[in-house]
């Protein structure tokens, strides 16, 4: 078995610790991660797949293949796209049960709550909820 959810979250925490809480370096790094996010097929960017934030949009789609969920996502803002890519790195290729059980603790640890927490702005909180809902829905199929 490859890396667990915990392994990847710990890896991300390690990566961000090198940025030394410097906000500009952090944002820059998040944007670079966004640039590496596999492109989402335009046909999947439907109204139905929008997870809407106040200021930025996120598209999220999921498919179940052989008991494994594959997520595709994108955002219309560079920073949110980077954050989306972090989530995708953690959740893609997992079983529905693993998704249901996920605790996204890395967000607290790398000081990203301000990107997600109380601000209604970027739809990332809604995206995490939607990921879990996909997990729950698919868990009834496997």
């Amino acid at each position: 078995m490859s890396s667990t959810v915990k392994d990847i979250q710990d890896e991300i925490i390690e990566e961000f610790s090198m940025l030394d809480s410097d906000m500009e370096m952090t944002i820059s790094y998040i944007m670079e991660l966004g640039e590496q996010l596999p492109e989402m097929d335009e046909s999947l960017k439907t109204e139905q797949n929008i997870v809407k934030g106040c200021q930025s949009k996120v598209w999220l789609n999921a498919t179940l293949n052989d008991g494994i969920i594959d997520f595709q996502a994108d955002s219309n803002t560079a920073i949110t796209k980077g954050l989306v890519s972090l989530l995708i790195r953690i959740v893609s290729g997992r079983s529905p049960q693993e998704i249901v059980d996920i605790d996204f603790y890395f967000i607290d640890k790398i000081g990203l709550n301000r990107f997600i927490g109380t601000q209604r702005s970027n739809g990332l909180g809604a995206m995490m909820k939607q990921i879990k809902l996909y997990g729950l829905a698919f868990s009834t199929l496997v």
């Binding site: 200021q55 930025s56 219309n76 560079a78 949110t80």
Partner: peptide
């Protein structure tokens, strides 16, 4: 070519508080 949300976050990182949206 730059979304206002990204601009606002970057501005904040540089100490400048503006509103976006």
């Amino acid at each position: 070519g730059i979304h206002h949300f990204d601009l606002g976050m970057w501005m904040d990182a540089k100490g400048v508080a503006v509103r976006t949206g």
